[in-house]
Write a protein that binds this DNA or RNA. Structure first.
Length: 236
DNA sequence: GCGACAG
DNA sequence: ATCTTGTCGC
């Protein structure tokens, strides 16, 4: 699929934050996503890499990505793509996309199937500057994109979350609604859902729940995670 | 200054 | 996230 070149990626934190604020103003909530046949999910993993001879201290870290497209009706696999790149950024909270998005987008670029909706492991709007990796990737893909994170980065949960699968509570920052805390499975920690791009929050919640019928994390995300882990172990 | 901090 | 064995529990 086609990838929009939004900007250069080799920026310092200050410039990156400016880019995030600018891009956040371009994120669209979009209309309710009533129908979706296919979902894509991406996962990224890092491989430390061996120290090069004669150069103490400097090693080449690799960032690996796997993207999978599934049919929502039966979770059958339609396509799998992988990519690897040298790390350009360390992990810095609030700047995850500058580390992981370039590799993920390279894997998305290889897709021949354009998914109806994309699931990203991380936040979208629920970000200090309202541009988490899900929004960043969504802007580059121009496809409805959902952020589904395993822990909180910004904001706070308003009220209490019920114990049943499907229970939800607002994720807010001040008076601003930035996401939803969603329990996808009873007796298990919830996930944090937020708008990535071109989708509304209610639809995002709906599709995350639909994609996670049995386990805490959506099936596409689980599969992408296994694939990238296997890829990393094979990678030299 | 202190605490928090996606993956 | 990653380094890592077994173990408790459904």
């Amino acid at each position: 699929m086609k990838i929009r070149q939004l900007h250069r990626w080799d920026l310092d934190c200050r410039a990156a934050a400016a880019v995030q604020r600018e891009l956040a103003s371009r994120v669209g909530e979009g209309p309710p996503l009533a129908r979706a046949e296919t979902v894509a999910a991406a996962d990224v993993s890092a491989r430390p890499g061996r120290a090069p001879p004669g150069r103490a201290g400097r090693r080449q870290e690799w960032i690996l990505a796997a993207v999978v497209v599934l049919r929502l009706a039966d979770f059958s696999v339609l396509e799998v793509r992988k990519a690897a790149r040298r790390a350009g950024w360390p992990y810095v909270p609030g700047f995850l996309s500058f580390r992981e998005a370039p590799v993920a987008l390279e894997a998305f670029r290889q897709l021949r199937t354009v998914p109806d909706v994309v699931l990203i492991d991380g936040h979208g709007r629920a970000h200090p500057r309202r541009l988490g990796i899900a929004s960043h990737i969504g802007l580059a893909l121009q496809v409805p994109t959902i952020g589904c994170a395993k822990s909180l980065l910004a904001g706070e949960v308003r009220g209490r979350l019920g114990p049943a699968r499907g229970s939800r509570a607002p994720l807010v920052e001040g008076s601003e609604r930035i996401g939803t805390v969603l329990r996808t499975r009873a007796g298990v920690r919830p996930v944090y859902v937020s708008v990535g791009h071109l989708i509304d929050l209610a639809s995002a919640e709906r599709w995350v729940l639909a994609a996670a019928p049995r386990f805490r994390l959506p099936e596409p995300a689980r599969l992408a995670h296994r694939l990238v882990t296997q890829f990393r172990r094979e990678f030299s």
